[in-house]
């Protein structure tokens, strides 16, 4: 792997997961809601994209539906699916607070995961869907990696801009008030149930889009791509970047993805060495996590910039 490939991988996956971090940032830092089921909305988007774009089943395929639609229909369906899943899971749970909400969202995500594993008619069970269609960037004269890195970057940018527009408005002021003090917010007529629900659902939409893009990039969706590890990864990235700012969330994600890609890019002589490196990666991630929690360098950097 050369430097250009490394750069493209960091931009591609860094941007893609930044979309998730940005959404979590909106839900948690601004909305005060702990969603520990992030991966489920991501999976909903990826599976919706695959189902809408793949060919109808044939041969050994066990899935029921393949619409063979155009990529943009799959992309839109991904946003809708993620949003629908947010409506479904948000409605009964958003009365809960703090760790109770974290536990229920986690449980919902585990339920979806086991549904995808066990219900072959949706996504072919553990085998997953491998007939994912994707647009050919060749027609634009772009190599695939550049095109998808660019698309991920644009999606991240669009997400950040849309969220910023929302948060810079009186809407952002109202959700800050609700997070700061629900009783006081109710005393000035804020419908806290409506505001929390809207924030939860709105922030799920870009996660669904990211899921679609992820499906295009991997051209495969299967349950083991969508485990709780994804959720933890995004939470670590959010904590790394400091939860208060959009730029911090992006920097934290880029740093974490960059570190992982670096470890992966290192040429190992034997399988054993690669195994040791993989274990080392986990340990170093853990240590980094602790160091960054202690000093919050990205948050400090963003604050210095804001002060300047």
């Amino acid at each position: 792997m050369n430097l250009v490939q490394l750069f493209l991988a960091v931009v591609m996956f860094g941007s893609l997961f930044s979309v998730l971090t940005l959404s979590l940032n909106l839900q948690y830092a601004r909305g005060g809601m702990i969603n520990f089921g992030t991966v489920a909305y991501f999976a909903a988007g990826a599976y919706a994209y695959a189902i809408v774009t793949q060919e109808p089943p044939s041969g050994l395929d066990q899935y029921l539906v393949g619409l063979h639609g155009p990529w943009w229909a799959g992309f839109l369906a991904a946003g809708v699916a993620s949003m629908a899943f947010a409506v479904l899971t948000g409605w009964p749970t958003l009365r809960l607070r703090g760790e109770y909400l974290a536990l229920t969202t986690f449980a919902f995500a585990e339920m979806l995961h086991s549904l995808l594993v066990n219900e072959r008619r949706i996504g072919n069970g553990t085998v997953g869907l491998a007939n994912v269609e994707r647009p050919d960037p060749g027609s634009l004269g772009l190599p695939d990696a550049w095109a998808y890195a660019g698309a991920a970057f644009l999606l991240m940018l669009a997400t950040a801009l849309v969220f910023r527009r929302l948060l810079a408005s009186p809407y952002g002021r109202a959700i800050d008030a609700v997070r700061d003090d629900e009783t006081a917010a109710e005393a000035i007529g804020k419908d806290i149930a409506r505001l929390r629900f809207e924030v939860f659902v709105i922030s799920a939409v870009p996660i669904g889009f990211a899921g679609a893009l992820y499906a295009m990039i991997t051209t495969l969706v299967s349950p083991d791509l969508f485990t709780a590890e994804v959720t933890f990864f995004v939470w670590i990235a959010l904590v790394l970047g400091g939860e208060r700012t959009i730029l911090g969330a992006v920097l934290g994600t880029m740093a974490l993805v960059g570190f992982q890609e670096l470890v992966r890019a290192f040429p190992f002589e034997s399988v054993r060495a690669a195994e040791i490196a993989a274990a080392g990666e986990d340990i170093v991630t853990g240590i980094l996590f602790i160091l960054i929690l202690r000093w919050q360098p990205f948050e400090a950097m963003v604050k210095r910039r804001a002060a300047a």
Binding site: V162, R165, L166, S169, P170, Y171, A174, I188, K190
Partner: peptide
Amino acid sequence: IVGADSAGERVGMAFSGRW
């Protein structure tokens, strides 16, 4: 200001910028 009932607290208004 947050005490006043602002039209911009509706999602549509917030996005449109008409607030």
